[in-house]
Simulated scan of single mutants.
Amino acid sequence: MKVLISADMEGISGIVHPSETNPGGYDYERGRARMTAEVNAAVAGVLEAVPAAEVLVADAHASFRNLLPEELDRRARLVRGQPRPLGMLAGLDDDTDAVLFVGYHARAGGGPGVLAHTIGAGILDVRLDGRSTGEIGLNAALAGFHGAPVVLITGDDAACAELRELVPAALNVAVKRALGQAATVALHPDEARDQVHRAAAKAVRRHDQVPLVTLTGPLKVEVDLYGPYTVDLAVLVPGVTRAPGARTVAFTAADVAEAYRLVQLLAQLALITPG
Results as ranks from 00 to 15, higher is better:
Q264V: 07
V210Y: 00
S13Y: 00
P189H: 10
A186Q: 09
K176N: 08
V151K: 00
A41W: 10
G137T: 00
G245M: 06
D93L: 02
V237Q: 13
F251T: 07
R77K: 14
A182Y: 14
A37P: 01
L163H: 03
V256Y: 02
S63P: 00
D95Y: 10
T214F: 09
A42M: 07
A158W: 10
G103M: 04
G81K: 06
A53D: 07
D194K: 10
V16M: 12
A116G: 08
A52V: 10
Q209T: 15
V102G: 06
L4A: 07
D27A: 14
V213R: 06
R198N: 12
V39N: 00
R193H: 07
I119C: 06
V213N: 00
R242T: 11
G31S: 00
A250V: 06
A161K: 10
V256S: 01
R127F: 09
T154H: 02
E258H: 11
A121R: 15
E258G: 12
R74P: 14
D208C: 09
L166W: 05
S13I: 04
V50M: 11
A186M: 10
D97E: 14
P85H: 12
L265T: 03
V126R: 02
L72R: 01
S13A: 15
V43L: 09
G147V: 03
P228D: 09
V213D: 01
G130K: 08
G81N: 04
L128T: 08
P69H: 01
G31Y: 03
A76I: 03
D94W: 13
P228L: 12
A143R: 04
P168C: 07
L72W: 00
L56M: 12
V249G: 06
R65F: 01
P51G: 11
M88A: 13
A253S: 05
L152Y: 01
G81A: 07
E70D: 13
I15V: 10
G45F: 08
Q268L: 15
S6I: 05
V175K: 02
V3F: 03
K202I: 14
Y226E: 14
A44R: 15
R74K: 14
A116F: 00
A37G: 09
